[in-house]
Nucleic acid binder design. Structure first.
Lengths: 154, 154
DNA sequence: TAACCGTTAATGATGTGTCAACATCCCGGT
DNA sequence: ACCGGGATGTTGACACATCATTAACGGTTA
């Protein structure tokens, strides 16, 4: 258990700003989303792929893969959204184990109303503060960090 | 609601990588922390400033300011950590409204055991993938975005 | 056919975070 | 001395995320 590889001053500063960004940017986006559209972050995340699917219909398994969630999380979230009338569950004919998730009219109306405002928030809070060169550097750096991350099982 | 200011291809790519980073990097750090030390992320965040305070003693208000949390969140989290024996609540003599939070011996042992491994995770998963130039650019970009963020009430 | 294994979902328990009351206390002006 | 507004914490209700367990189903193999 050595003291080696501690963070130096510059590294600590970057880490603080990253933590701050993660908390404050996402917090601001979440609050604006709720305020402007009445949708929560997780609701928005599920509605996007559903709204892009033919008939607003996706199998729960595929929905989970599209957003990178596990089955249990999908199941709980779809349950809450079903109670709110945004989606309905239907049985899956190809595979009796599966279940289908279908966007309701209310759900489609909600995502259509929410998307433009949300994109505008992302642009004004994030992209408007970046230069074009920074956009390039950040993309390369983020993708390299992502590529080096261990699989979910670690 | 116009279609203007939609994200172009390069912007969408950066946004995807940022979202991925946010989820996968923080997820990996959380899982390693729990696995290596038995501490959760929020527990770790409160234990750090407490371990640096004289006597391991901080007023709840000050603890909240140090980590940037609101009162309710502090209260709930301290309550859970008190049940786990990591901290104890004491009354505040200077101000009868306040309450003090004190690190227990078990709490101090936990943070001392957890910190080196956590820093090593941050370094190996994040900093080792960045060049020195990127470190500079990211810090400047993050701090500029942070400075432009609205206050919590917006 | 029967035993078995992997996939898919649902569910309950637990930890976490936010919000809206609520109670209490401090402090300044009157 | 009093009063009223701001500060401080706690609590309960709810939404969210993860984990372990359970159940049902499909396909493979004995």
């Amino acid at each position: 258990m050595t003291e080696a590889r501690w963070l130096d001053e510059r590294e600590a500063r970057l880490w603080r700003s990253y933590r701050g960004l993660r908390v404050r940017l996402d917090g601001a986006l979440w609050r604006r989303l709720v305020r402007d559209s009445g949708l929560s972050g997780p609701e928005f995340e599920l509605l996007v792929p559903l709204s892009e699917a033919p008939g607003g219909l996706l199998r729960a398994r595929d929905l989970g893969r599209l957003v990178g969630w596990e089955r249990s999380r999908i199941s709980h979230q779809v349950g809450r959204m079903e109670k709110r009338g945004l989606v309905v569950r239907e049985e899956c004919f190809e595979d009796a184990r599966g279940s289908m998730v279908r966007l309701t009219e209310a759900g489609r109306a909600a995502i259509v109303a929410a998307a433009p405002s949300h994109v505008e928030s992302v642009r004004s809070l994030f992209f408007d503060a970046l230069t074009d060169d920074e956009l390039t550097v950040l993309t390369a750096a983020f993708e390299r960090v992502l590529a080096g991350l261990p699989k979910p099982e670690d």
